[in-house]
Computed example of a mutant assay.
Amino acid sequence: MGKDSAENIEKLKLFSKYIGIAYQIKDHLKDSLNVSETGKDQFLDQTNKKSSSFLYLLESVEAKKLLDCYKSLAIDTLLKIDLDFSTLQEFIELFFAFTDI
């Protein structure tokens, strides 16, 4: 049981990393939308000198591909954990579906 728990913890850490990166990419993509769609000023990150944004480092299309990649990596990692995370998986799918860019 101890080994399995340690492996699950490492997988959860990896899941957290992937879902965090996916969220950041989504946030940077949303920053490029107009204020009526997000509730915040357009290009606020750029105005605040956040030049390391995924959107500014990559083209928008490439950033969207990277977002999909990290979301998939997060879900794939979650499915490898020996626990039932079906509700969390559904939440992730819905969260990213309702915030499509």
Rank of each mutant, 00 (worst) to 15 (best):
M1T: 09
G2R: 10
D4K: 08
S5F: 10
A6F: 13
N8W: 03
E10Y: 06
K11E: 00
L12S: 03
K13N: 05
L14P: 00
L14W: 01
L14K: 09
L14N: 04
S16A: 10
S16M: 12
K17E: 02
Y18R: 02
I19P: 00
G20M: 10
G20R: 05
G20S: 12
I21V: 08
A22Y: 02
Y23I: 15
Y23H: 07
Q24M: 15
Q24E: 02
Q24P: 01
I25W: 02
I25G: 00
D27C: 14
L29I: 11
K30M: 11
K30H: 13
K30E: 03
L33K: 08
N34C: 08
V35D: 03
V35T: 07
S36G: 02
E37K: 13
E37F: 07
E37G: 07
E37S: 12
T38F: 06
T38V: 11
G39P: 01
G39N: 05
G39Y: 10
K40F: 13
K40Y: 04
D41C: 10
D41Q: 13
D41V: 14
F43R: 03
L44E: 04
L44Y: 08
L44S: 08
D45I: 10
Q46Y: 11
Q46A: 13
N48V: 10
N48M: 14
K49E: 04
K50L: 14
S51V: 06
S51A: 15
S51R: 13
F54P: 00
F54V: 02
L55C: 11
L55V: 12
Y56A: 12
L57E: 02
L57N: 08
L58K: 09
L58Y: 10
E59I: 05
E62G: 14
A63V: 12
K64G: 00
K64A: 07
K64M: 09
K64L: 11
K65L: 14
L66Y: 01
L67N: 01
L67C: 06
D68T: 09
D68L: 12
D68G: 13
C69N: 07
K71N: 01
A74V: 09
A74N: 02
I75G: 05
I75L: 07
D76P: 04
D76V: 13
D76M: 13
D76T: 07
T77M: 15
L78G: 03
L79T: 04
K80L: 11
K80W: 02
I81D: 01
I81G: 04
D82S: 13
D84V: 08
F85M: 09
F85D: 00
T87Y: 09
T87C: 07
Q89F: 12
Q89E: 08
Q89T: 06
E90V: 11
F91R: 06
F91Q: 06
I92Y: 05
E93P: 03
E93N: 15
L94D: 09
F95T: 03
F95D: 01
F98V: 15
T99H: 12
T99E: 08
D100S: 10
D100E: 06
D100I: 14
I101C: 11
I101D: 00
I101V: 14
